[in-house]
Design a protein around this nucleic acid. Structure first.
Length: 302
RNA sequence: GGUACCAUAGCUCAGUUGGUAGAGCAACGGACUGAAAAUCCGUGUGUCCCUGGUUCAAAUCCAGGUGGUACCA
C-alpha cells in the first residue's frame, strides 16, 4: 500500500443495538463512500435476522463489505480479516479519501487499526485434540502442559480461561516455540489516518433498545431462521447470541419465552462487554447516535 | 366495614431461642492477539414499610398506623 496520510479510515464502534448501521449509512451518504463491516457475525450469509444485518434497502443505498461475505461452514478469523481489510482499503482509497468501518467486534477493529502478530496457521486437528484433553481431564491438565511449554506465558495468562490456554498450547505445539516469544504486541503503523467514533447512550435507554430489537427479531422470524440452522448448531459461527438460546429451546431444555428472555439478557451482557472493550481504548471520541451532524462537522473540519 | 395472612436488595424470597442481614435471578466492574455475539475473572448494591414501646441489644417481641392479598360481609 502506498503511504498516503491524506487517506482516512473512520471507525464507528459501539454496543449492539445502539444504531451503528443507520449512523454509518448516513455518514457514508454524506461522504459518498463505502462501508466495511467489522462484525464477526454479520460476515455469515446464513445469519440474517439474528445478527441485525443491514436491510436489502440499506445495502442498496451504500456498498457494504464483509456483510454476508462468508459461510458459517468456512473458517474465518481476525488475522485473515486484517489482511483482507487492508487489501480492500488499497482498492477503496483509490476512489475515496475517507472510508468507514463500522462494527461491534473490538478485536477485529483492533486488528485493522493496530495489527495482530503474524503467527503460522495451526492445524484444526490440534485444537480439537487439546479440546478433547480439556473436556476429558479438566483444566488442570492443560494448565500443567502450558506451565511446562511456556512458563512465562503461564505466569501472565488468565489461567482459568481454557480458550486462552488452548490457544497458547496449540501455537507452542505447532511451531515448537514458545507462544510468548512469538508475540510482539507491537502496534503496526498504518499508511492512512484513523479516527475513532464511539456511539453510546444511557444504559437504560440502550437496554430498552436491545429488548425491543429482540422482540422485533422474533416478529421478523428469528425462530424460523434458527430452525433452518439447528442442524449446524455445533459450528462456532452459531455459538451466537440469538441462535444458541433458541437452539436450547429446540433441544427441549427451555420454553420459547424463556429463550427470548435469555437472548435479551445475553445481548445486554454482550453490550456491556463491548463497552468495556471500547472504553479501555481512549482514542475514541464519543457521541450520541443522534449527533450525526457533529460527526459530519468533525470529519469535514480535519 | 370485619377477620386472617403478608411487608427484608431491582425481582422472587430465606433469616432458628432477639446479637444491625443472605440466596437465586437481574444488575454492576474488569480481562481478553487466530473460537471474540466467543471465553474468563471480580463485586451485595439494603431507611429489613412507618411511628412508638419492651430490652444492654429488635428484621425478629408488643401496640398503633400505612400498603397489599385472600376470605367474610
Amino acid at each position: 500500500m502506498m503511504l498516503n496520510k491524506t487517506k482516512r479510515l473512520i471507525v464507528i464502534a459501539g454496543p449492539t443495538a445502539i444504531g451503528k448501521t443507520e449512523f454509518a449509512i448516513k455518514l457514508a451518504q454524506h461522504l459518498q463512500t463505502e462501508i466495511i463491516s467489522a462484525d464477526s457475525r454479520q460476515f455469515f450469509k446464513e445469519l440474517n435476522i439474528g445478527t441485525a444485518k443491514p436491510s436489502a434497502r440499506e445495502l442498496s443505498v451504500i456498498k457494504h463489505h464483509f456483510v454476508g461475505s462468508h459461510s458459517i461452514h468456512d473458517y474465518y478469523n481476525v488475522a485473515q480479516f486484517e489482511i483482507d481489510v487492508l487489501s480492500l482499503l488499497d482498492v477503496l482509497f483509490e476512489k475515496h479519501n475517507q472510508v468507514i468501518m463500522v462494527g461491534g467486534s473490538g478485536l477485529y477493529i483492533d486488528a485493522v487499526c493496530n495489527g495482530i502478530d503474524e503467527l503460522p496457521d495451526v492445524d484444526e486437528k490440534l485444537r480439537q485434540e487439546l479440546n478433547k484433553i480439556y473436556e476429558d481431564e479438566g483444566i488442570a491438565t492443560i494448565q500443567q502442559k502450558l506451565k511446562t511449554l511456556d512458563p512465562e506465558f503461564y505466569d501472565t495468562i488468565d489461567r482459568s480461561n481454557p480458550k486462552r490456554i488452548i490457544r497458547a498450547l496449540e501455537v507452542c505445539l505447532a511451531t515448537g516455540q514458545k507462544y510468548s516469544e512469538q508475540r510482539s504486541n507491537a502496534k503496526k503503523e498504518r499508511p492512512f489516518e484513523i479516527i475513532k467514533i464511539g456511539l453510546n447512550i444511557d444504559r437504560e435507554q440502550l437496554y430498552q433498545r436491545i429488548n425491543e430489537r429482540v422482540d422485533q427479531m422474533v416478529k421478523d422470524g428469528l425462530t424460523e431462521e434458527a430452525k433452518e440452522l439447528f442442524e449446524f448448531k455445533q459450528l462456532n459461527a452459531l455459538n451466537t447470541v440469538g441462535y444458541k438460546e433458541i437452539f436450547d429451546h429446540f433441544s427441549g431444555n427451555i420454553k420459547l419465552e424463556k429463550a427470548i428472555e435469555k437472548i435479551k439478557t445475553n445481548s445486554r451482557r454482550y453490550a456491556k462487554r463491548q463497552l468495556t472493550w471500547f472504553r479501555k481504548n481512549d482514542n475514541y471520541q464519543w457521541f450520541n447516535p443522534n449527533e450525526i451532524e457533529k460527526v459530519i462537522a468533525l470529519v469535514n473540519r480535519s
